[in-house]
């Protein structure tokens, strides 16, 4: 027996705004990012001044995390961006993480990518535009992934019946 639910009525579980976590110990830049992103789209945004606070809220399942590389500059006891990235990936490897840094250095970018970052963006005047594009791209990928998973489940269910 095949699934009786018409294809046209089936919905992908991707409704609602994109949930974004912003993590930066620079309060001014963090606020600027939040304002900029809110002005550019319908995003559900949570902000954090430390990696630790972000990790405590991962159960909220962000669609994307925007994470500063240099989180332990002033507070030496704070975990840095790479450690935070590793812990996010350990929690859920599918959460895309966009790394941010003031340092335009290839070794920093390579370090981030080696640890599983989706991309690396240098803090600059154009950073916000790039971030917005990346968030849209990531959201598009996630939607496609969810659609694909849904079709795979339907196909598997049909095979069983």
């Amino acid at each position: 027996m095949k699934s009786e639910q018409p294809v046209a009525q089936l919905k992908v579980n991707s409704s609602g705004p994109i949930k974004i976590f912003l993590v930066d110990d620079d309060a001014v830049f963090l606020k600027l990012l939040e304002i900029g992103l809110r002005q550019q789209g319908d995003f559900d945004i949570e902000t954090f001044a430390t990696g630790e606070r972000c990790l405590l809220r991962l159960s909220h399942h962000p669609d994307v995390v925007i994470l500063d590389y240099h989180l332990d500059g002033i507070d030496k006891n704070a975990i840095n961006g790479i450690e935070t990235l590793d812990k996010i990936k350990a929690f859920d490897a599918d959460i895309p993480v966009l790394m941010l840094s003031s340092q335009d250095k290839i070794e920093v970018a390579v370090d981030c990518m080696h640890h599983g970052a989706f991309d690396y963006i240098v803090k600059s005047e154009s950073a916000l535009v790039r971030l917005q594009k990346m968030v849209t791209t990531v959201a598009g990928y996630k939607k496609m992934e969810k659609t694909l998973n849904w079709y795979m489940k339907i196909a598997a269910a049909n095979t069983i019946h």
């Binding site: 110990d25 620079d26 001014v28 830049f29 600027l32 240099h70 500059g73 002033i74 003031s102 340092q103 803090k123 600059s124 005047e125």
Partner: peptide
């Protein structure tokens, strides 16, 4: 010194 200057840099263009 590096950390303090690093953190102060982004606010220059913002302000």
């Amino acid at each position: 010194l590096y950390a303090a200057v690093h953190k102060i840099i982004p606010s220059f263009s913002i302000m």
